[in-house]
Amino acid sequence: MIKGLWWKLTGLGLILYSIVAGQMIEVPELPVIHQTIRNLFYHVCMWFAMFTMFGTSLVYSIKYLTGNKPGNDIMASESVYNGIFFGILGLITGMIWAKFTWGDFWTNDPQLNGAAVSMMAYLAYAVLRSSIDEKAMRARVSAVYNIFAFMLLVIFLGVLPRLADSSLHPGKGGNTSTMQGLDLTMRLVFYPAVIGWIIVAFWILQIRARKRRLVQNVNQINK
């Protein structure tokens, strides 16, 4: 009945597995974070889902610029909105985690600043879209800005934290990489969780895009 029911159920199942297993497994005893390491299965997945969504929107923006198909614009903008949603979830989970480990909701960490500024860039994308009335122009201009914003995201989350002197996040500024700190059981939960969240993100994206198309069709009929 539903298109592609199986991959959707797989995504749900993987996340459900990661939620239950993430609480039940034994985690290695680490200083400062202790048991809060379990948040890794939720917090990091949000960023992965966000990054995938923004990457998808980059692909569709490039497609739009080369082909001028309105469908690609819908996909590009909806995946940005979806990415913002996951980004906000990532910020919230991260802030809660930070409160219990580093003692504050917000720290002056390169990774955090990068995340905040790239979220701002994508919120600016939403403002930009709402400020242009003509459809083709809106699609074109926002596609151009989207490519700019993605470049920013890459610089911010990929390049700058590695240049910075110190960071509270692993893998940056001389800390050891996350993957070295993860033992096998944690990986067995972490990777399925990431895959599951990415699948569900695509599902939400699909639903949003289909809804937009429906609304568009109805508007055309009303005209």
């Binding site: 403002v127 242009i132 151009v144 911010f156």
Partner: peptide, 27 residues
């Protein structure tokens, strides 16, 4: 150039420009 294609460009210029220049500013 992006802001000039939209309605109210003074406000948009600040909103769009700020995240773009922050990496440069940090460096």
């Amino acid at each position: 150039a992006i802001a000039s294609r939209s309605g109210n460009n003074a406000a948009l210029m600040a909103i769009l420009g700020f995240p773009v220049v922050v990496p440069l500013l940090l460096l």
